[in-house]
Design a protein around this nucleic acid. Structure first.
Length: 823
RNA sequence: GCCGAGAUGGCGGAAUUGGCAGACGCAACGGACUUAAAAUCCGUUGGUACUAAGUACCGUGCGGGUUCAAGUCCCGCUCUCGGCACCA
């Protein structure tokens, strides 16, 4: 018998599939389409088994759908612009392009060894001209429509990466990539107006039924919608007003001071002459303090009185105006009305500076006067001291207060979002150049569509300390104005790589089109993506940006769908020795070594069997050994069957019962695995189902004399088990299919149907309980009636012992399942 | 603080609708084969107790409840993980 030796046949089958074009997709085919997509990687070095899990999940879905008769698109590509390439260039004196393309080649080789069924003809790589010219094109479309703009703003600057970062790329005040503390700098930068889409990005989440709840929650939190009112306060004795946003207009009567953000331009305007010195001092202190210490919740509230007063529009009270460290310029109007009695922050501040605390909402559980308050009451209750609203429940009066404010022209209802515009310019080299030109005469002029791509020059000086490296290439920098032909200068910033990756799924449909980014008709037919698979780490950044861009393209009538990804599956990471795999930790498991040692199929199956695919999992060497045993056992069993079939010297089979059981297990498995794949990707249990089938088969072959085997049945087992195996362990499935003398390829076979007759049983085991406790199990014929079941149960010796001679009060009978005798 | 997910043997995990808790795998132990090891095969494996081949009791984070019956449903907690967070 042949040993299981995957190295002998895996490559052969990979070549066969490739040469027969089985992974290639005819975009124009009339067959029902299925677009399976995995998040493309950033090509830094090599991939590890964590990536493999992602690709295998996608491949199982793609292969399964092909068996189900769909026209499947399963593409792959590389998110190949980005900082690591540039850093590697600086560290090793190698050009980012060379470094990147070398990695692309290495990873492609790694993936091909795994037998993932990608259509390599549709590959995209975002750093190539034929891709990034369309990234630039999309930029121009946004610019034309007022969705890309330049502004001077306080932006996040990473001193180590020497570039600005989007809000989404800052975590706990640090650069998401390198961990350095991010500084705030006042710079002129490019933004995409994602805030215009805040409401739609939020609303449309409700329609994404197949997305994991936690991802939608994260996006909702990030968008951060608050409903409330804008209220206008007059400045006492001056013809000026101060506008604030509040979610609690019901507490207006409790406002006892106003506070401005230190960055607010109104601070200068509203400072009394005799307070100027002190205020200046405070502002100076604020600019020195780093933003994230200041903005942390634990930071002590601090502020300075400006010397002027506002007038509370609802009761005419004069209230002092402060500048305070806890007010954010970026949110609302950069100013607040403070209600110490009903807000923790205002309360802390008021306590510190001796500002009155006026209760206007009564805490139903703790009615008391303001002076005794130990903490603010932030809940809802009955309004007090609130003019005509006194006595009303605060939650019900919100809308009425806003309406009243509108009638009196004191304010209006308002909605605020935490979402900020997307900062997309980067002061780095290895990215798509922003296609803009600055003319001495005409000012800012976009590059004409026909002049795209704005090519990224090969030679630059990377050591440009904080300035874009593109500044150092004269022939790039100097341009002529598209408008007047005069002397002009190119934009030297490149785009955030998240711009590249927020539209690649459209490019996969016609990746070689030289005239447009995508063919609208084809894209409309193939999108949205039927199944998107990737890591949770992209829950906000990539997925939000992609959704945004899709909506923009929809509004521009370039596509006819509003959401790019119908189904989203977020897979967990693979850890080793308790840590994420990383070169510095030295715990990287290389897929190449695993393929070398066990074969691609074992690695594929283990990466699915390791646990529920959406959960993080720990890689263990003994775990993959276990899967390898399973694969080898299947191999051996099939070898034995194939040899016997060839021997052709079998007697008559007479093992009806064992045959029936084996056939039932086979169809049980088909049913289980189909369901496990269809319902939420339970690949780990799908594989355990195959293991059970394999064990059953093994038992059959072991326990029943060879002469008595039902070769017809074993033929059915080979035929159907091979197909079931094919999405998971495609090489093994193909080899078995071929060795058993079948024609064609297993990848071309239809997914097997369950024969309901095979699942039928004659006997069932009935659970006998007394007072809900298991006392006996009895085998009876299927469909036995209630009375019979009851009397059988009563006749059980163990049951009688527990009855202790008592008469049952009640007997519950569930036919074919259980009898519960209640005393 | 707000939002989300979760807690089951030594470990990873399984359990359609409430109906045998622990499938499948790992690890461990015992046995077969072998000069030996590896590989392979067969078996045992939640805990405790005993009059021990059986039987009883306990057992799905904790405390209550509903039900003939709860890992599963309801109420109240604890802890863990993830996200957001001085967002007015």
């Amino acid at each position: 018998m042949n040993e299981y030796n995957p190295q002998e046949f895996e490559k052969r089958w990979q070549d066969t599939w490739e040469n027969n074009g089985l992974n290639r997709t005819d975009i124009k085919s009339e067959k029902e389409k299925f677009y399976a997509l995995v998040m493309f990687p950033y090509p830094s070095g090599t991939i590890h088994v964590g990536h493999v899990k992602n690709y295998v999940i996608g491949d199982v879905v793609a292969r399964y759908k092909r068996h189900k008769g769909f026209n499947v698109l399963n593409p792959f590509g590389f998110d190949s612009f980005g900082l690591p390439a540039e850093n590697a260039a600086i560290a090793n004196n190698i050009h980012p392009g060379i470094w990147t393309r070398k990695n692309v080649e290495t990873i492609t080789k790694q993936i091909k060894k795994l037998g993932i069924s990608y259509d390599w003809e549709k590959q995209v790589s975002t750093c190539e001209e034929d891709y990034y010219r369309w990234t630039q094109y999309i930029f121009l479309k946004l610019y034309e429509n007022g969705l890309a703009y330049r502004k001077n703003a306080a932006v996040n600057w990473c001193p180590k990466c020497n570039t600005v970062l989007a809000n989404e790329q800052v975590k706990d005040g640090c650069c998401e990539r390198c961990g350095s503390v991010v500084e705030l700098r006042q710079l002129e930068q490019w933004f995409f107006k994602i805030t215009d889409y805040a409401e739609r990005l939020l609303e449309d989440l409700d329609g994404l039924d197949e997305w994991p709840e936690h991802v939608k929650t994260m996006q909702r939190n990030w968008i951060g919608k608050s409903k409330g009112a804008e209220v206008r306060f007059e400045i006492d004795g001056e013809n000026k007003t101060l506008e604030v946003f509040t979610t609690r207009p019901d507490t207006l009567w409790g406002v006892t001071f106003m506070a401005l953000a230190p960055e607010s331009p109104l601070v200068q305007e509203l400072t009394a002459d005799d307070r100027k010195e002190e205020v200046e001092e405070f502002l100076e202190k604020m600019t020195k303090e780093d933003r994230f210490t200041r903005a942390s919740e634990e930071a002590e509230k601090e502020g300075v009185f400006l010397g002027k007063y506002a007038v509370n529009p609802v009761n005419g009270e004069k209230i002092p105006i402060y500048v305070a460290n806890y007010i954010l310029m970026e949110y609302g109007t950069g100013a607040i009305m403070a209600v110490p009695a009903h807000d923790q922050r205002d309360f802390d501040f008021a306590r510190k500076y001796g500002i009155p605390i006026n209760v206007v909402i009564e805490d139903p559980e703790n009615p008391g006067s303001s002076d005794q308050m130990l903490k603010p009451f932030t809940g809802t209750g009955i309004m007090v001291n609130s003019g005509k609203f006194s006595g009303m429940p605060s939650d019900q009066s919100l809308a009425k207060v806003i309406q009243w404010l509108e009638e009196k022209q004191l304010g209006k209802s308002s909605i605020q979002y935490k979402l900020r515009d997307w900062l997309i310019s980067r002061q780095r080299y290895w990215g798509a150049p922003i296609p803009m030109i600055y003319c001495e005469e005409c000012g800012m002029v976009p590059v004409s569509e026909n002049d795209l791509p704005v090519k990224l020059p090969h030679d630059v000086n990377f050591d440009s300390s904080g300035k874009s490296p593109l500044t150092t290439n004269g022939s790039f920098l100097n341009a002529t104005c598209p408008k007047c032909g005069g002397k002009a200068r190119r934009e030297v910033d490149t785009m955030d790589t998240f711009v590249d990756s927020s539209w690649y799924y459209l490019r996969y449909i016609n990746p070689k089109d030289e005239n447009k980014p995508f063919e609208t008709e084809d894209v409309n037919r193939w999108l949205p993506v039927d199944q998107y698979i990737g890591g949770v780490e992209h829950a906000i950044l990539h997925l939000l940006y992609s959704r945004f861009l899709t909506k923009v393209l929809y509004d521009l009538k370039l596509i006819d769908f509003k959401e790019p990804f119908k189904n989203l599956f977020t897979q967990g990471m693979i850890y080793k020795d308790g840590f994420k795999m990383s070169k510095s930790k030295g715990n990287v498991v290389s897929p190449d070594e695993m393929v070398e040692e066990y074969g691609a199929d074992t690695l594929r199956v283990y990466s699915l069997f390791i646990g529920p695919p959406e959960k993080d999992a720990e890689w263990t060497d003994s775990g993959i050994e276990g899967v390898h045993r399973f694969i080898k056992r299947i191999w051996t069993s099939f070898q034995v069957i194939i040899e016997s079939a060839n021997a052709n010297s079998l007697g008559e089979h007479k093992t009806a019962k064992a045959d029936k059981e084996l056939r039932r297990k086979l169809h049980w498995m088909i049913e289980k695995i189909t369901r496990d794949i269809e319902v939420d990707f339970h690949f780990n249990t799908a594989i355990s189902g195959m293991m059970e089938m394999s064990n059953e088969l093994h038992r059959y072959l072991n326990e029943i004399p060879r002469e008595e085997w039902d070769m017809g049945l074993l033929g059915e087992v080979i035929e159907k088990f091979s197909v079931i195996l094919s999405p998971f362990a495609p090489h093994l499935a193909e080899e078995i299919w071929s060795l058993s003398g079948k024609s064609g390829l297993v990848v071309e076979q239809k997914w097997p149907e369950v024969d309901p007759a095979a699942l039928e049983v004659d006997e069932v085991e009935i659970i006998i309980q007394v007072n809900g406790k298991l006392r006996d199990k009895i085998s009876v014929g299927k469909g036995e009636n209630r009375d019979t079941l009851e009397s059988i149960a009563m006749s059980s010796e163990n049951v009688q012992r527990h009855l202790e001679g008592k008469i049952p009060r009640k007997v519950i009978v569930i036919p074919d399942k259980l009898v519960n005798i209640v005393l």
